[in-house]
C-alpha cells in the first residue's frame, strides 16, 4: 500500500502543526517545560523554561539534546515541547550578553534543578560581578560553608543554568581556570568576552 504514503509537503505541514500545538499548549498552561535552541558564540545552546522561569541552559556537546530533554522529563515533567516563544525573553537577554550589551540577567529563573547546598552555591554565583572572578573557597564562604570547597566545585559542575548563573567566573585560587561543564575553552571564551 505504498501509494497511501505520499510525502509531499508533509515536513512543512508538520512543522506548522507543531507550532500551532505549542501555542495552544502555552495558552492552556499544559507544558511542564518549553524549550528552544539558540546560536551563540560558544556554540548552540538549549534553553528550557517552566511556567516559573528559565530552568535549564545546556551547551551543545556537554550532553546530547535528547538526554537533556529526557532529564527534564524525569525531573520536571514529561510534557516537554519545543515552544520557542516561551524562551523569547531569555534568548534576547543572552543575545545582548554575547554582544557585550548586558552585564546581568533579569529573566525569571526556576532553580528547582539545584537543591540543598548546590542551590545555595548557584544562588550566590551572580554575586560575582561581570568581568570578575572568585575562587572556589570564596564562593564557599559566600554560600555560608567556608570549608565546603569541593562541594562548590561539584555544584558549579552541575549548575543547571550556566552562563546565566556565572559559574564560569569561579576559578582556582592560583588563578588557573579550573573545570567547566562546557569545557575549558568555553570558560576562557566567556571570561574573555567579559573583558571587553
Amino acid at each position: 500500500m505504498s501509494e497511501l504514503f505520499p510525502d509531499g509537503d508533509e515536513a512543512r505541514t508538520l512543522a506548522r502543526l507543531h507550532e500551532r500545538l505549542a501555542r495552544a499548549a502555552d495558552r492552556d498552561a499544559l507544558l511542564d517545560v518549553g524549550y528552544r535552541l539558540v546560536d551563540s558564540p560558544v556554540g548552540p545552546l538549549l534553553l528550557a523554561a517552566t511556567e516559573a522561569g528559565l530552568v535549564r541552559v545546556a551547551f551543545d556537546g556537554e550532553v546530547r539534546e535528547d538526554e537533556v530533554l529526557q532529564e527534564l522529563a524525569e525531573q520536571v515533567g514529561a510534557r516537554v515541547l519545543a515552544a520557542p516563544r516561551r524562551l523569547d525573553r531569555a534568548a534576547a537577554e543572552l543575545e545582548e550578553y554575547f554582544a557585550g550589551r548586558r552585564r546581568r540577567f533579569d529573566v525569571a529563573l526556576d532553580l528547582r534543578l539545584a537543591r540543598g547546598f548546590r542551590r545555595a552555591v548557584v544562588e550566590h554565583l551572580a554575586d560575582i560581578g561581570y568581568g570578575r572572578t572568585a575562587s572556589y573557597s570564596e564562593v564557599a564562604s559566600l554560600a555560608g560553608s567556608p570549608r565546603a570547597v569541593r562541594a562548590v566545585g561539584t555544584a558549579c559542575a552541575l549548575n543547571p543554568l550556566p552562563v546565566v548563573l556565572p559559574c564560569h567566573r569561579v576559578v582556582r585560587a592560583d588563578g588557573s581556570l579550573g573545570q567547566y561543564a562546557g569545557g575549558p575553552e568555553r570558560k576562557r571564551a566567556l571570561l574573555d568576552l567579559e573583558q571587553h
Partner: peptide
C-alpha cells in the same frame, strides 16, 4: 517517561 516532543516527532 519520554519527553512529549519525542511523541510528536515519532507519531506526528
Amino acid at each position: 517517561m519520554a519527553p512529549f516532543e519525542q511523541v510528536v516527532a515519532r507519531h506526528g
